[in-house]
Design a binder for these strands. Structure first.
Lengths: 229, 229
DNA sequence: TCCACGTATCTTGCATGCATCATCCGTGCG
DNA sequence: CGCACGGATGATGCATGCAAGATACGTGGA
């Protein structure tokens, strides 16, 4: 009668055979949709169809459907039954909401990081890397480095839930910001300076300064993003 | 060449025919799994199989698979390819993480609510309802009312992202707490008193008191939950 | 006894097909 | 000319089927 086997707690991480088929079809569909969302191919109010995406990737609709479900959960699109997927436009309100949320999370994380000071040297080095990427005009890499900088501070909290919440909050700016940064290199230089202030406060073990630096950084980011849409 | 039609921005909310088929199979599967997670039928380290759940609900594996994906995203289970779904146990660490996250969110929301004071009367009334439910020993309804109380404060911020983050954070205590409350009615009485303090501070328009009341409430909740696992 | 190996069994990933629902559009009527 | 109606079209929800990966187990050999 029991429909589930009661326990089988041996999910060993090793695999007898690595059997690396690469990412699954579902993951490829998900990555593809996100990439289009971030590079601006899928813009606000656009209507997507599973079939078209499936055809493009030469896979069936099933994994595409799963990817769309996930994107809906993450707030990027909205699924209308039997009608299709509407790409939600990024509104000013949403950007404000995201930045408020990020502020709550990142201020908390930076405070903790400053208390331990461990991250300091690593973060300062990362800021140098960012400056280098700016000089070499490697936009894509810069965006990745920016992401890594913030993510590292969050992850140092060890709080997986915060991490997931942050991941959702970060996607929205990416939809606006990726194309935006390219057009405003002066903003990027400023952004790096703000990063440096955060890293320095953490390295100094000054939680109050770290909180203030993060708040300033996010304030500036919000203004920049609001100008961009 | 363009795989997507560029726009069809007419997702009218009205339906020509209501055509109320009730919830979709996928939603039913999702609700079913969550219910089992919360009522303790699906306990930590248990291994679930799509086929069994599908059979139980008399639907196919497809919608069950979608529901499991969503549960994985919400952090309740982990999917092992070709092996099944492992129900993740709720650890003390996770409870702490969740309460830290909730504290960030709810303190912020309570502060805002106290600034506007609008929610005050409604919240105080809700607390009275909770006391009534306690006296009548309606555990299920009480849990729902508790959820509604917190959710209302969050939703008043109008920040959809915070709302979603809170929803994820709230699920974890539900897996521990539903069965726990039943066994500790004295904790419930205390909990209601804490709710009343929060509601009163908001009604008084005292943000500092509201923040403090929320922090106290969540501290107590954490202790209670940690004792429960 | 203990380990290696081949096979049966279980489970999932995904392709495919069908039924249904929403939308679009042409036609006929007032 | 405007509008209602009906079929064509396109989209999804979900059932089903197949192939492949993972595990369990029985058997044979050292």
């Amino acid at each position: 009668m029991s429909p589930q086997r009661s326990l089988k707690p041996t999910p060993r991480t090793r695999r007898a055979t690595p059997a690396d088929d690469g990412p699954s079809a579902s993951e490829r569909a998900y990555a593809h949709i996100r990439a289009r969302l971030f590079d601006g191919t899928f813009t606000g109010n656009m209507m997507l169809s599973e079939g078209d995406i499936a055809e493009e990737l030469a896979i069936s609709r099933t994994p595409v459907h799963e990817a769309l479900l996930r994107c809906e959960f993450e707030g990027h699109i909205r699924l209308y039954p039997k009608r299709g997927a509407l790409v939600l436009p990024v509104s000013a309100k949403e950007i404000q909401d995201v930045l408020v949320t990020r502020r709550l999370i990142e201020v908390h994380a930076a405070d903790l990081a400053a208390q331990s000071r461990e991250l300091g040297p690593g973060l300062l080095a990362q800021v140098d890397t960012q400056a280098d990427l700016l000089h070499r005009e490697l936009d894509e890499e810069f965006s990745t480095a920016d992401d890594a900088f913030h993510k590292q501070i969050i992850q140092a909290t060890g709080n997986g839930l915060l991490d997931r919440a942050y991941a959702m909050a970060r996607d929205v700016p990416l939809r606006v910001g990726n194309s935006n940064l390219r057009r405003h290199p002066e903003r990027v230089a400023q952004l790096i300076a703000e990063h440096r202030a955060i890293a320095q406060a953490i390295a100094d073990g000054d939680p109050a300064a770290a909180r203030a630096a993060v708040e300033h950084h996010l304030d500036m980011a919000m203004k920049s993003l609001l100008r961009a849409i």
